[in-house]
């Protein structure tokens, strides 16, 4: 059966995910060493050790994401995060930075290394480079690949692959995007945040709701309509072509989230080891519901049965869902 890797932003979410059938939980420390560095989220050292014990007692694994890029002159914070994750009994750490991978491979030879999606290893050469140089055992694939490309990659590598199947969708190669810091000064790579809430401002202007990120208007929605969060790459903009004809719309991506449920059998056939659910910032109830649905789906796929329909309709309600780059037409 494919392994189901589920998010936990809090110890309560970790317990909920384990109870709902997660095979593995991923989480991070409450600091800038992880790419979901949001206020009120993530784990202290003690909470991680307790979470690992709880998960292990019930047959689930815990993976610790230390997937931002260590700040020059300040690498010790990231180094200690790796050491503390190993001490807490983590089953693997999920890293993106070359320097940190080299450090972990040298100082923590028994710690299993996963390559974060933030490293954006998008072809067999990149994956084999990380495997040979640092002993990486699993790679989380960036969301720029089709199912066929994933199958082709798996034929050329000896490490496991993990892919995102549900939740937020990056449209840019992950870990290679500075849109957020261009608009707000805070970036995923350096600060573990994208389009941070601290830089969002809402206002009512001429009967419409405007959502800004920093100085830039990202959405304008009619009063009373559901206003999506102003994530930069899901914003509505205008663009004139060379002849001056102006297009208005979601130039990069609609405010859609990823749902690749129906592709699970194809991903299994493509040789994917693990399916990942995005959303460490989500509530315990959300996590439990999604994990339960996906556990049923991977069990069905394992038996060769069709994917259960409409399991997650409620969770994507009011928001479009897409299979993203897994279908070639998306590009």
């Amino acid at each position: 059966m494919m392994e189901l890797v589920c998010p936990a932003g809090t110890p309560a979410a970790l317990r909920a995910a384990v109870e709902a059938g997660a095979h593995a939980i991923y989480c991070g420390f409450a600091d800038e060493t992880n790419a979901r560095n949001f206020p009120g989220l993530n784990f202290s050292r003690e909470e991680l050790a307790e979470g690992v014990a709880h998960a292990h007692a019930r047959g689930a694994k815990v993976l610790v994401a230390i997937n931002t890029f260590p700040r020059a002159g300040d690498q010790a914070l990231w180094h200690s995060a790796v050491a503390d994750a190993e001490a807490a009994g983590a089953d693997a750490v999920i890293l993106a930075d070359i320097g940190l991978l080299a450090h972990a491979a040298e100082k923590h030879p028994n710690l299993r290394l996963h390559l974060s999606v933030q490293a954006a290893a998008a072809n067999p050469d990149a994956i084999n480079l990380y495997a040979e140089s640092f002993g990486v055992r699993r790679v989380v694939l960036p969301r720029v690949l089709t199912v066929d490309e994933i199958a082709a990659i798996n034929r050329e590598i000896d490490v496991e692959t993990e892919v995102f199947v549900f939740g937020g969708l990056c449209v840019m190669a992950e870990g290679r995007c500075a849109l957020s810091s261009y608009a707000t000064g805070k970036s995923p790579n350096m600060n573990g945040v994208c389009s941070p809430a601290s830089h969002v401002a809402y206002a009512e202007v001429n009967g419409a709701q405007e959502a800004r990120l920093g100085d830039f208007l990202i959405h304008r929605t009619p009063k009373g309509a559901v206003a999506p969060y102003p994530t930069l790459c899901k914003g509505c903009f205008t663009s004139p072509d060379a002849k001056g004809e102006v297009q208005t719309g979601h130039i990069f991506e609609d405010p859609a989230s990823l749902d690749a449920t129906r592709l699970i059998p194809a991903l299994q056939k493509a040789g994917v080891t693990a399916l990942k659910i995005e959303g460490r910032q989500r509530s315990r109830a959300y996590v439990a519901q999604v994990v339960r649905a996906f556990r049923a789906a991977v069990e069905a796929a394992d038996r060769g049965q069709p994917m259960p329909e409409g399991l997650l309709a409620k969770l994507t309600e009011g928001q479009a869902a897409t299979t993203g780059a897994y279908a070639k037409t998306w590009r």
Binding site: R143, V144, L145, V171, M172, A173, R176, C177, A178, L179, Y182, C233, S239, D241, Q247, I251, F252, E253, A325, K328, T329, W330, R331
Partner: peptide
Amino acid sequence: LAISGRCYHARLTDRAK
């Protein structure tokens, strides 16, 4: 600032990459 699997120039003219 960013690189993608998707071509935005093509998308702006309703084409695929």
